Computed example of a mutant assay.
Amino acid sequence: MDKFYVTDCEGPLSINDNAYEIADFFLPDGGEFFSILSNYDDILVEKQIPNYMAGSTLRLILPFFKAYALTERDLIEFSEDHIHMIDGAYTTIKYVQQLMPSYIVSTSYNQYIEALCTKTGFNYNNTYSTILNLDEYELDMNDQDKLLDIYQNILLDSSFENLNHIFDDIISKMPINKLIESVKPVGGIGKRDAIEDIIKKNNYKPENLMYSGDSITDVEALEYANENDGIAISFNGNIHSISAANISIASDNNLILAVIANIFKDNGTTGVYEFIYEYNNDPLGAILSNMDDNYITQQLLLSKPSIKLVDENKINDLVDESKQTRNKVRGVNISNLG
Rank of each mutant, 00 (worst) to 15 (best):
E312Y: 15
N294C: 01
D293T: 00
N267T: 11
D292M: 03
L255A: 03
T297C: 14
L309D: 04
L300P: 10
Y273G: 02
V319N: 12
I260H: 03
N313P: 01
L257F: 09
I260M: 10
M291D: 00
N313R: 07
N280K: 12
E278I: 07
T269C: 14
T270A: 11
N281I: 05
E274A: 15
E274K: 12
D317P: 02
N280E: 06
D292I: 05
L318Y: 08
N290V: 09
T270G: 02
I260W: 02
M291E: 08
D266R: 13
K308T: 10
S289L: 12
P283I: 06
D311C: 06
E312R: 10
Q299D: 09
L300E: 01
I263V: 11
D292A: 02
N262F: 01
L309W: 05
N253Y: 08
L318W: 06
L284R: 14
L288G: 00
E274N: 15
N254E: 08
I315V: 15
Y279N: 05
Q299V: 07
K265C: 09
Y273W: 08
F275Y: 13
K265F: 07
E274F: 05
D320N: 14
Y279P: 10
I296M: 10
N281K: 10
L301I: 13
N313A: 12
K304A: 12
D320T: 13
V272A: 07
